[in-house]
C-alpha cells in the first residue's frame, strides 16, 4: 500500500463518475486523478456539481456510475470499505458542523477515541497539539457556540486532522465566514498545504489558489470544463465559460 503512494502514483482516482438526484444529472462523467501531496482547487458556479463531486469521494453522496478508488480502496456498497476510506479522509464543511453538545477538546478527540481506539490521554494530547497548530490552544474547554465563526472552522480543521488523514476535503470552508475571519482560516489551510497534505478545496478564494494550488479544476453543469495550473487558469484560460466566470468573481 505504501508503495502505491510514493513516486507519484495517484491516491485518488475518479473515472467517469456520474451522479443523479432523482432526474437531475448532477455529475456527468467526472474524471480526476490526484497524487499524494497535491493541492487541488475546484471552482465554478453554484450548482455545477463541485461540492457533490468531493462529497462522493468519502461517500457522503453515492455515485451511480463510474469508479472511485481512494488509496487503493474502491468505493462500493461495502460498508467496511466506506468506513476505512472515511477514516483516511478528513472533511471540513461550509457550516463547520461541530458537535454543539461537546467541548472543543471532545469534538477533536471523539473520532480518534471511538474509531482509532486511542486512549483518552493520547487523544487529548494530540488534540491540544492540533489546537496549538490552528492557533487557538486556549479554547479547548469551551463549547463551539462560544467561539467565533473563524475559530469554529479552525476547530473543525483540527477535528478532521486528529484522525491523521491522508487526504483533506474542504467544501467552501470560508463561505459562511465574515470577511475579517476568512484570513485566519486561509492561513491555517495554507500552512497545511505547505506541510504536504493532499488537499481538495472547493473555494472561490483565488488568493489561496494562487498561493498553494498545484492544479485547478473549473466545473460547470456537472462536468470539468477546464483544468490547469493556477498560472494557466488565471493568465490564459482556454474556455469562454472559464473566462466569463473568472471575470465575474475577480471583478469585485
Amino acid at each position: 500500500m505504501d508503495e502505491a503512494n510514493k513516486d507519484g502514483k495517484p491516491i485518488i482516482i475518479a473515472r467517469e463518475v456520474h451522479k443523479w438526484f432523482d432526474n437531475f444529472h448532477a455529475l456527468k462523467g467526472v474524471s480526476m486523478e490526484v497524487k499524494p501531496g497535491e493541492v487541488i482547487v475546484i471552482f465554478g458556479p453554484s450548482g455545477s456539481g463541485k461540492s457533490t463531486f468531493i462529497r462522493t469521494l468519502n461517500r457522503l453522496e453515492e455515485h451511480q456510475k463510474g469508479t472511485i478508488i481512494i488509496d487503493g480502496i474502491e468505493l462500493s456498497h461495502d460498508v467496511r470499505n466506506i468506513e476505512r476510506v472515511r477514516s483516511e479522509i478528513g472533511m471540513v464543511f461550509q457550516q463547520f458542523n461541530l458537535f454543539p453538545h461537546l467541548t472543543v477538546l471532545e469534538n477533536i478527540t471523539l473520532a480518534p477515541i471511538w474509531v482509532r481506539n486511542w486512549k483518552k490521554d493520547k487523544a487529548e494530547q494530540v488534540a491540544r497539539q492540533l489546537l496549538e497548530r490552528v492557533g487557538i490552544p486556549e479554547q479547548a474547554d469551551k463549547f463551539p457556540g462560544q467561539l467565533s465563526g473563524g475559530q469554529q472552522q479552525r476547530v473543525a480543521i483540527a477535528r478532521a486532522l486528529a484522525m491523521q488523514p491522508k487526504i483533506m476535503l474542504f467544501d467552501e470552508p470560508t463561505s459562511a465566514l465574515d470577511p475579517e475571519m476568512i484570513k485566519e482560516v486561509l492561513d491555517v489551510m495554507v500552512e497545511l498545504a505547505r506541510s504536504g497534505m493532499t488537499m481538495l478545496v472547493v473555494t472561490h478564494e483565488m488568493s489561496f489558489a494562487r498561493a498553494v494550488a498545484h492544479r485547478m479544476y473549473f466545473f460547470d453543469a456537472g462536468n470539468i470544463i477546464e483544468t490547469g495550473t493556477p498560472e494557466q487558469i488565471f493568465k490564459s484560460p482556454q474556455e469562454d465559460r472559464t473566462k466569463l466566470f473568472l471575470s465575474q468573481i475577480l471583478e469585485h
Binding site: R86, S87, M91, L98, H101, A111, V115
Partner: peptide, 27 residues
C-alpha cells in the same frame, strides 16, 4: 438534529451505532 451533524460524524469515520449514541441521541 441538523443533517450536517450526521454528515460530519460520518466523514470522521464513525459507525452508525456510535453516531446515534454519541451525536444524535445526546442532542
Amino acid at each position: 438534529i441538523p443533517p450536517g451533524q450526521i454528515e460530519a460524524a460520518k466523514a470522521l469515520g464513525l459507525r452508525n451505532y456510535h453516531i446515534t449514541r454519541l451525536i444524535v441521541l445526546p442532542q
